[in-house]
């Protein structure tokens, strides 16, 4: 009972903070992209255009709800809610400070992988239920890409698990606080593992250069082609939540989470998360998009074997390097 209340209170707070962060994150992204493209970005709504996202949400929620005649209505309506659920749900086990964590699961890493992996279901559901060819191709691409990159993701996440010997996310962060961040030491394992994690995270949250499921120059809008108004908002939000939570997980697993000098843990966690979140947009507004088969080749020919090597390397490190024990 106690757990239910704890989860609900922390869940309410964390989810609202995440959504607010995303509202301003979108503003930030648009400003950031604007600067990259020698234009201004939003300037009209509020000071420096800060309230642009709020205006956008209000506009989106007011939009007419159009459902295609041939759509599979129940699945069509269910998919956006599930997308919001699974993307936000991952945040439950992320420790934002030594004490701020909604659910300190002993298998937190597995929970992240499992719930994050479920994102394919609403995406496919939306693509299939729309009965639209672009949406269906997008859905199939999404699911193929997501399951493919699930493999390097799992392998990359195994590295901190091996190094710390625990499946609990807060346990991994505590280990890093007591020893060293996994990104910095052992650096020849930590850095590539983090790189693989980051690429897989980009792929799972459909960001350029891995955004083929919604490749708008090919598939118009991918799975969300037929979606309008609030349902589209939910998908759009879920995508950003996925990126933000993915950044937070990366910060926790590889960058030492809330560990850092001078300031309280929460500050460090927020800072690291936002830095990773920003890099997503830096990449997004710089690169072109890969083709679906090239994406798969990258995943299966390169990232997967490298991930396996890193897992074995981390195990050997723990096993044979005296400093690895501790």
């Amino acid at each position: 009972m106690n757990g239910l209340v704890h989860g609900a209170v922390y869940g309410g707070v964390i989810a609202s903070v995440l959504l607010t962060t995303i509202a301003f994150g979108i503003w930030f992204e648009r400003k950031f992209a604007g600067r990259m493209q020698s234009r201004l970005g939003p300037t009209i709504v509020g000071p420096f255009g800060l309230l642009q996202s709020v205006a956008d949400v209000v506009k989106l929620l007011q939009k007419e709800d159009i459902v295609p005649r041939d759509a599979d209505r129940p699945l069509f309506d269910l998919a956006p809610v599930l997308a919001a659920l699974f993307s936000l749900g991952v945040a439950a086990v992320v420790p934002f400070s030594p004490t701020i964590i909604a659910s300190d699961l002993d298998v937190g890493v597995l929970y992240i992988l499992a719930v994050g992996g479920l994102m394919v279901i609403p995406t496919f559901m939306a693509g299939w239920a729309s009965n639209n060819k672009f949406a269906l191709i997008g859905g199939m691409r999404a699911i193929a890409q997501s399951v493919s990159y699930g493999v390097p993701l799992v392998l990359a996440v195994l590295v901190p698990v091996i190094l710390s010997g625990t499946l609990s996310v807060s346990g991994i962060v505590t280990y890093q606080a007591n020893h060293h961040w996994f990104l910095t030491w052992p650096v020849f394992i930590g850095v590539p593992a983090f790189a693989i994690y980051y690429m897989a995270m980009l792929a799972e949250s459909n960001r350029i250069p891995f955004d083929i499921p919604e490749a708008e120059s090919e598939l118009v809008a991918g799975v969300t082609t037929e979606y309008t108004g609030a349902k589209f908002t939910l998908f759009y939000m879920a995508e950003y939540v996925h990126t933000l939570v993915g950044s937070a997980v990366g910060a926790a697993l590889f960058l030492g989470g809330w560990d850092g000098p001078f300031a309280p843990g929460l500050h460090w966690m927020v800072l690291k998360t936002l830095v990773l979140f920003t890099v997503v947009y830096w990449v997004r507004w710089s690169l072109l998009r890969l083709r679906s088969d090239q994406l798969m080749v990258l995943c299966w020919k390169w990232l997967t074997p490298i991930g396996v090597l890193l897992v074995l390397g981390a195990a050997a490190w723990v096993q044979f390097v005296p400093g690895g024990f501790q």
Partner: peptide
């Protein structure tokens, strides 16, 4: 049985259901 619960979602819901969706498609 936390581990089993996680594995159940990861492999069965995330993996096998996906596999079956592809099988249908």
């Amino acid at each position: 049985s936390s581990f089993l619960a996680g594995v159940q979602v990861l492999v069965y819901v995330g993996g096998v259901v996906t596999l079956m969706i592809f099988g249908v498609m």
